[in-house]
Design a protein around this nucleic acid. Structure first.
Length: 624
RNA sequence: GCGCUCGUAGCUCAAUUGGAUAGAGCAUCCGCCUUCUAAGCGGACGGUUGUGGGUUCGAUUCCCGCCGAGCGCACCA
C-alpha cells in the first residue's frame, strides 16, 4: 500500500474514533508543498462545517486519535487546519528497502493492481482506409495507446479496438472513381497511389453532382454485398492495413490486426440494430410532423427519446439536443437513400462490446471470449463530443448500457482532445495546404534527432547513433503529445519538442541513460540488500518522489489524462538530477553509502522503465 | 443565435479537482565541468490567473454577467 493510502486509512480511523464512523469516509490526504510537508491531511476544514466546530479544534481532535508515530514524527497543525506531516526517515528507508527486496513490487515500481479488475474497451486510432495516416491520427493513437497500456498495467482486462473507417460514404467515392481509372487489381497497390486516388475522387465528388449521386449509390451497393464493390474494397484494404501496421510499429502503438474491427465488421448488424432500437424506443408517429417537432422557446427540444422518420431519414430524437433554430436535433441512423452511417455503426459497436457473447454469429472474426465491457473509452477529436453525447444517450435510452453479467451501467466515456496546430496557430498543414503525412513527419523527427545526436555526442558510432536518433525522434513526438492536458490544442513546433531541456522526451531519456551509465561502470550490480540511508536533502527528496509513483498512476486512468504521469516523471528526473549533482554514487565516502545511492539509482530506473517505457510507450536508451 | 471547450509570467505549459506565499521550461541576467554523460545543476528577474460580481474559513478551480478565441449545430466521420 502506498504511503498516501496508508495515511488516508489512518486518518479515516482517527476521524471515526473522534467523531463517529459517519464522518470517516475518504479523508483528503495529498502530497504537500515540500516547503511545509511531505503529505498533508485537509479533512479538518471540511469536517468543521459538518460538526459546527472551529477547524483547528477539529484538527487537534483528529490528531489526538490518530496513530502515526511509525510513519511520521510530530505532525503539525498549520493555517486554518492543515495537518502537515514529515515522513520519518526510518519509515521512508524501510519502505524503499521493501520495494528493493521484492522483485515483483520492484518490477511494478510500487504500483498496486486495481482492487477490481474490469473489462475496458479502448477505441482509438481509427484511421480511414485508402488514405495515408496523417497528423489527424497522431493524438488519438498516442493518447489512446497510453491509456490502454496504463489500464492494462493496473490489472484491467483491456480490449483495444481500432475502429477503422472502411465502409462509409467516403468509400463510395473511391468505388465510383475506380470505374474511371480502370485499375489493375491484380497487383498490390501502393498507399501513396491510393492516397492520390482518394484526393482525386474527393475532388470529383465536390465538383460533379452526377458523380456524387453515383458515389452514394456505390455505398449502398457495397453495404449490400455487391461482389465487384467488395473485390475493390479488399484490394484497397489490404494495402491500407499494411501501411497502418508499419506506422503503428514505428510509433510503438500496441494495436494489432486482431484489434481491428472497422465499420465493415458491423455491416451485417446495422439493419438489426436499427430494428431493435425502433423496438426499444417509442415511435414518434409515422411522419416527420413539423408540428410535433416545433418547440416552444421556453423549453426547446424533446422531452423524451423516440425514433421517427423525418425528411426521409430514420432518426432518434433525444432530450437536450437542438439545432441552430432551436429545433430538435436528430441522430440519423439511416439515411434517406437507405445507407447507414457512423452513428449506426457506433451503436452497433456499443451493442457488440456490451451485450454480445460468443454464441452470437460472427462471420468475420469469431470471438474467443465474451467481453461484456464494464467501461468503454473513445479517444477521438473534441469536435465529435456532441456525436458521442448523442450516441451514449441513445444507448442509455434503449437500456443497452446495462452489463448483462454485473447488471451495472457501463461507463461510457469520450476522452476528447484538441487539435494539432502549426506555429501560426492554425491547423497543422503542409505549405501546400495538405495534411501532413505521418510517415513523413516521423522521418523528419528521426532525421532532426539524428542531427542533434551527432552534434551532442560526436563519438557515438553510427549504428548506435541511428538507434538513439530513432528513439529520441519518435519519443519526442509522442511525449510532446502526452505531456499536455489533452483537451487543449497544441502547437507542433520542431524546435520546441526536440528541445533537450525542460519537460521533453529527450530529457527523460537522458536521465535514464545517465543512470545506466553508472551501472555499467559499477559492473551491473543489483543493490538488492543493504541499508538505505538518506543523508542529504537531495537523497530524501528523491526517495519521497519515488514513493509517490504508485499514487500517480491510478489518477491517469480515472481522469484519462496521461499528462499527470508526464509531469510526475519530469519532476522525478529533476529530483534525480539534483541528487546526481550533489551525491557522488560510485565515489561515495563509504561502501555502505555507495550501496545506498546505487539503490536509489536502481529504483529511479525502475520507475522510468514502468512509467516511460511500459505506460507511455516511449523507448529507453542505454546511452545517448 | 444556441451549445461545448478554453483564456494563468514576454513565449510554451502545470497547479493532485475548493487548500497555504499560483509552479516549471524557454527567453534575459549571475554562478558551477582535470570527479559517475553539462542533453545537466544552483540562483536572480518575471503574475491584479481576460474582466465585473457572487458563494465561504479559503476561489486559477464552483455559480452569474460581460470581453475574447477555437470548435460543433440533418443525412461526412
Amino acid at each position: 500500500m502506498s504511503i498516501e493510502s496508508l495515511l488516508r486509512e489512518r486518518f479515516s480511523r482517527a476521524i471515526g474514533l473522534a467523531f463517529g464512523s459517519e464522518f470517516a469516509g475518504d479523508p483528503m490526504v495529498k502530497p504537500g508543498d515540500p516547503k511545509f510537508a511531505d503529505y498533508q491531511c485537509n479533512a479538518a476544514m471540511a469536517l468543521s462545517r459538518q460538526l459546527g466546530r472551529p477547524p483547528r479544534d477539529v484538527a487537534t481532535d483528529i490528531l489526538r486519535h490518530a496513530s502515526l508515530t511509525d510513519i511520521c514524527e510530530s505532525p503539525q497543525i498549520a493555517g486554518p487546519g492543515f495537518i502537515n506531516m514529515r515522513i520519518s526517515s526510518i519509515f521512508l528507508t524501510r519502505r524503499l528497502g521493501e520495494l528493493l527486496a521484492d522483485p515483483v513490487a520492484k518490477a511494478r515500481a510500487g504500483v498496486a493492481r486495481a482492487a477490481e479488475s474490469t473489462t475496458v474497451v479502448v477505441d482509438y486510432a481509427g484511421p480511414n482506409i485508402a488514405k495515408e495516416m496523417h497528423v489527424g491520427h497522431l493524438r488519438s493513437s498516442i493518447l489512446g495507446d497510453a491509456i490502454a497500456r496504463t489500464l492494462a498495467f493496473m490489472g484491467h482486462q483491456v480490449v483495444r479496438q481500432n475502429h477503422v473507417g472502411d465502409f462509409g460514404t467516403q468509400f463510395g467515392m473511391l468505388i465510383r472513381y475506380a470505374k474511371d481509372l480502370k485499375l489493375d487489381t491484380g497487383e498490390m497497390p501502393r498507399i501513396t497511389d491510393l492516397d492520390s486516388y482518394y484526393k482525386q475522387a474527393a475532388g470529383r465528388d465536390k465538383s460533379d453532382a452526377q458523380f456524387s449521386i453515383e458515389a452514394r449509390q456505390a455505398v449502398v451497393a457495397l453495404q449490400s454485398g455487391d461482389p465487384e464493390a467488395l473485390r475493390l474494397w479488399h484490394w484497397i484494404r489490404d494495402e491500407s492495413r499494411r501501411h497502418c501496421r508499419e506506422i503503428f510499429a514505428r510509433l510503438g502503438i500496441t494495436l494489432s490486426e486482431a484489434d481491428e474491427r472497422g465499420e465493415s465488421f458491423y455491416a451485417d448488424r446495422l439493419s438489426g440494430v436499427v430494428q431493435k432500437l425502433s423496438e426499444a424506443l417509442p415511435l414518434g408517429g409515422d411522419g416527420p410532423d413539423e408540428e410535433t417537432l416545433e418547440i416552444a422557446d421556453s423549453q426547446p427540444g424533446v422531452t423524451k427519446a423516440f425514433v421517427t422518420e423525418s425528411q426521409g431519414a430514420l432518426c432518434v430524437f433525444l432530450p437536450g439536443f437542438v439545432d441552430k433554430d432551436k429545433k430538435p436535433l436528430p441522430l440519423i441512423i439511416r439515411k434517406g437513400d437507405g445507407a447507414y452511417l457512423y452513428a449506426t455503426t457506433d451503436l452497433a459497436a456499443l451493442r457488440f462490446r456490451i451485450l454480445e457473447d460468443k454464441s452470437t454469429p460472427d462471420r468475420t472474426a469469431p470471438l474467443d471470449h465474451n467481453w461484456h465491457a464494464d467501461r468503454i473509452i473513445y479517444t477521438t477529436d473534441a469536435r465529435q463530443a456532441q456525436h458521442f453525447a448523442m450516441v451514449f444517450d441513445a444507448i442509455r435510452a434503449a437500456h443497452w448500457d446495462i452489463n448483462p453479467v454485473t447488471h451495472r451501467p457501463v461507463e461510457l466515456q469520450h476522452a476528447p482532445f484538441g487539435s494539432i496546430l502549426g506555429e501560426d496557430g492554425k491547423p497543422f498543414k503542409t505549405r501546400s495546404g495538405e495534411s501532413v503525412k505521418l510517415r513523413e513527419l516521423l522521418d523528419e523527427a528521426v532525421q532532426r534527432a539524428d542531427a542533434v545526436v551527432q552534434q551532442k555526442n560526436p563519438q557515438l558510432p553510427e549504428a548506435a547513433r541511428r538507434l538513439v536518433a530513432g528513439a529520441v525522434g519518435i519519443g519526442a513526438v509522442k511525449y510532446a503529445d502526452l505531456r499536455q492536458d489533452r483537451i487543449s490544442d497544441y502547437e507542433f513546433v520542431w524546435d520546441r519538442l526536440l528541445a533537450l531541456d525542460g519537460n521533453t522526451g529527450p530529457y527523460l531519456q537522458y536521465t535514464y541513460a545517465r543512470i545506466r551509465s553508472i551501472f555499467r561502470k559499477a559492473g551491473e550490480v543489483t543493490p538488492s540488500t543493504g541499508e538505505i540511508t538518506l543523508e542529504t536533502p537531495q537523497e530524501r527528496d528523491l526517495a519521497r518522489r519515488i514513493m509517490q509513483f504508485g499514487d500517480v498512476v491510478p489518477t491517469v486512468v480515472t481522469d484519462l489524462k496521461p499528462h499527470y504521469l508526464c509531469t510526475y516523471l519530469y519532476e522525478l528526473c529533476g529530483s534525480y538530477s539534483a541528487f546526481y549533482e550533489a551525491c557522488p554514487v560510485l565515489k561515495a565516502s563509504s561502501p555502505e553509502l555507495r550501496q545506498s545511492r546505487l539503490a536509489l539509482c536502481d529504483l529511479t530506473a525502475a520507475v522510468l522503465r514502468v512509467g516511460l517505457r511500459d505506460l507511455l510507450g516511449i523507448e529507453l536508451l542505454e546511452e545517448m
